[in-house]
Simulated assay, not measured.
Amino acid sequence: MSLDFAERVARVEPSATIAISNLSAELEADGVDVVDLSVGEPDFPTPENVVEAGKDAIDAGHTGYAPSNGIPALKEAIVDKLDADGLDHTTDEVIVTPGGKQALYEIFQALIDDGDEVVLLDPAWVSYEAMTRLAGGSISRVDTSDADFRLEPVLDDLAATVSDGTELLVVNSPNNPTGAVYSDAALEGVRDLAVEHDITVISDEIYKEVVYDVSPTSLGALDGMGDRTVTLNGFSKAYSMTGWRLGYFAGPKELVDQAGKLHSHSVTCATNFVQHAGVEALRNTDDAVVEMRDAFHERRDMLVDLFADHGKDVAVPDGAFYMMLPVAEDCEALRASGTGDEPVDQAWCEGAIEDAHVATVPGSAFGTPGLARLSYAASEERLREGVERLAEEGYL
């Protein structure tokens, strides 16, 4: 029997992050000690009070279907959180999803038709491109890499890219993969262009609680953006709840109504008892969030210093827990192996995991060749070990 696959699945490639993670797991299964700096997963346990809230919810019988768009208590907690961020939403403008990716998928499917233009700010998280292609959209890109990943210096490029035909612009601040936090002036520039060309904007704020010495602004809080911004967030990063699979988005009621149809026919609802744990996360975990954020801050500073010791200057992230490392084409290890036709960053990452047993993600997966993304959601000991291995094998 020959299966005839839908054309839409041929439009996308497997996640580069997951592919590297899988390779790392294979090496570890063979007994290799891999320093895995590839996956964006906090290395802290879920806060104990959140775990207990999940257990209590199971014991209380919250194991059946929940209301499709989310349990009232969680939607109310989300609305309160959004209000604290300057966003004015009601509970019927919120959908709770099993993970942030599902939220993103529903937004793209509800808004994008075949050929609709989506504008991405590179480096951009790999799933934005995949979601666009699955929806049949076309992609235009604006590169921030020459501006140290800041958005304000490339606003003219963005203005030259968007038009009245642009359907959607994706803004991710704090950013994955760069850790950049966009300035108020940059966001105001986005606002002006969105209003001028009547563009809907996704504001992906999944890392909003993971910032260092800055206070990020929510795009939807700016004048003129309340009815054209879809704000996406979740619980994986700030509350170390990756495996719980819980996210949400808030936007105009008409979008929530349309996306809610897809939601009800696909996932039905987010897991009931997990939503009760989400209420606890939003209401009672400020201390745990600060503790994790402070640890990431210290690791960031240490990693910047370690790379400087090896002559590597990196753009210092203001948020998230990622860093983009420039990888030189004349690197000793790559001269020895040859890069062939593949991007140098891909060859660098493949060599790094094979030779130094350090897992990273090639920047070309995010639209910016010549860089590698490292996650510092790992202990200081493992980060030091990773840098030492890269240096010893000629990758720095």
Rank of each mutant, 00 (worst) to 15 (best):
S2A: 12
F5K: 14
V12D: 08
E13Y: 12
A16D: 11
T17I: 14
I18Y: 08
A19V: 01
N22R: 14
N22E: 13
E28H: 04
D33I: 00
V34F: 00
V35N: 08
V35P: 00
P42M: 07
P42F: 03
D43W: 10
D43S: 11
F44P: 10
P45R: 10
P47G: 01
N49D: 12
N49Y: 06
V50Q: 00
V51Y: 11
K55C: 03
D56V: 02
D59M: 14
A60M: 05
G61K: 07
H62G: 03
A66Q: 10
P67E: 10
S68H: 15
N69E: 14
P72M: 07
K75S: 02
E76M: 09
K81Q: 12
H89E: 01
T91S: 15
V94P: 08
G100F: 00
A103N: 02
L104H: 02
E106W: 01
F108D: 03
A110L: 00
L111N: 01
I112A: 01
I112D: 02
D114K: 10
V119D: 04
L120E: 04
P123I: 01
P123D: 00
S127M: 06
Y128G: 02
A130E: 01
M131G: 04
L134I: 14
A135K: 00
G136V: 07
G137Q: 03
V142M: 03
R150H: 07
L151N: 02
P153D: 03
V154S: 06
L155Y: 10
D157E: 12
D157L: 09
D157S: 15
A159Y: 08
A160W: 01
S163L: 09
T166H: 01
V171E: 04
V171P: 05
S183G: 05
D184H: 08
R191Q: 08
A194E: 01
D198P: 15
T200K: 04
I206Y: 04
Y207T: 03
Y207W: 12
V211T: 12
D213V: 01
L219Q: 03
L219K: 06
L222W: 04
M225R: 11
G226L: 03
D227H: 09
R228P: 00
L232Y: 03
G243V: 00
W244S: 12
W244R: 08
F249C: 02
G251L: 01
L255Y: 08
L255V: 02
D257H: 11
H263M: 14
C269H: 15
N272K: 11
H276Y: 15
A277P: 06
G278C: 12
D286A: 13
V289A: 10
D294P: 07
D294W: 10
D294Q: 13
R299D: 02
R299I: 11
R299C: 06
M302D: 07
L303A: 08
H310G: 09
K312M: 15
D313V: 09
G319P: 09
G319D: 03
F321I: 14
Y322S: 15
L325A: 03
L325H: 13
P326S: 05
P326L: 13
V327H: 04
V327F: 04
V327S: 05
A328Y: 09
E329N: 12
D330K: 06
I353N: 00
V358G: 13
V361I: 11
G367T: 04
G370V: 06
L374A: 13
A377Q: 05
S379G: 07
E381K: 02
E381H: 13
L383F: 12
R384A: 13
R384N: 14
E388C: 05
E388R: 08
E388P: 01
R389I: 05
A391I: 05
E393K: 14
E393S: 15
